[in-house]
Design a binder for these strands. Structure first.
Lengths: 156, 156
DNA sequence: CATTCCATGGTAAAAATTATCAATAACTTT
DNA sequence: AAAGTTATTGATAATTTTTACCATGGAATG
């Protein structure tokens, strides 16, 4: 399983980052991080908490929140920019951008290397120091489009 | 005052959009919208509410929330993508992008026409139908950078 | 093995947003 | 311009989301 190897690498990296930041590698942190690594759906703290209930039944929601906030500080995870109420998170893997479905709220990653290579506008130097850039695209995802067609079309 | 003329135009447009959407042009809606037009700081519902307190002392916070949600539906305002808890809003004016200061939370608009002109990656057609695209840049704003220097540097 | 210190869980508070419903204000018709 | 119709508002309260508190527990250090 190559995917599993990749995850092993990520987890080693995780331990290293924790230690170098003076954070203890607790079971909760490990599980929260690896759950986020496996997840493809940019889960919220609450979703993660539910998802981990089987593995760590006593894990508190507060710990999930705290842990995610901690991870964000040491740059292990990102808190997404969405226009929803619940915050969503993702583990940092490959550089990518986000497509947000305005209908169902789903977040879909996409790669756009030619954007990543482009020079930023010079105006920005006056505005501040840049950490990271990302493109956010709003629209209607394929699934929602299809569902819409099916409820509109059926005239038989 | 040219700025005032521009706003007059915007307000006329506002009334038109409301009517064509079957919405009544109430004083509350007018004031909330024009407060958002004047604002340059992408205020939250609560900030707007406080700001309007002098003008409309009985305006309820709930109305601000409801009104902003309504405006977003008919595409008069945008709910911003930030990674904060409180939602922020802006009136739709000129096409622009956002710089978010991770330190102070400030949102600064910037123009980037060469991005606006660029073609989106073809992968996206499979993902869904696109409504709008925007670039989000995270970093540290000039003011925060300066404040940081002043607290670090003073060694005299 | 004892000590220290950080992280966790449980509870509860704070912050942010939304629901309910009677009263009110805006548009329409006359 | 007045009355009727209907959407909108305000006040209150409920939900949802996130954070604070603090005693307990467990890992690392000496």
């Amino acid at each position: 399983m190559p995917a599993c190897n990749i995850q092993q690498q990520q987890l080693q990296h995780f331990e290293q980052v924790c230690k170098s930041s003076g954070l203890k590698v607790t079971q909760q942190r490990l599980e929260i991080y690896s759950a986020l690594l496996e997840a493809r759906d940019h889960p919220s703290a609450e979703t993660l908490h539910k998802r981990l209930d089987r593995l760590l039944p006593t894990l508190s929601l507060d710990t999930v929140y705290r842990t995610l906030a901690t991870f964000e500080k040491i740059n292990l995870v990102h808190r997404l920019e969405t226009s929803e109420n619940q915050a969503r998170y993702e583990a940092l893997t490959q550089r990518h951008h986000h497509f947000l479905c305005d209908q169902c709220g789903q977040v879909i990653d996409f790669i756009w290397q030619s954007f990543d290579a482009v020079a930023l506008p010079p105006t920005l130097t006056a505005i501040g120091a840049i950490n990271r850039t990302s493109v956010v695209i709003h629209g209607k995802c394929a699934a929602c489009l299809k569902a819409e067609q099916e409820t509109t079309a059926p005239k038989d």
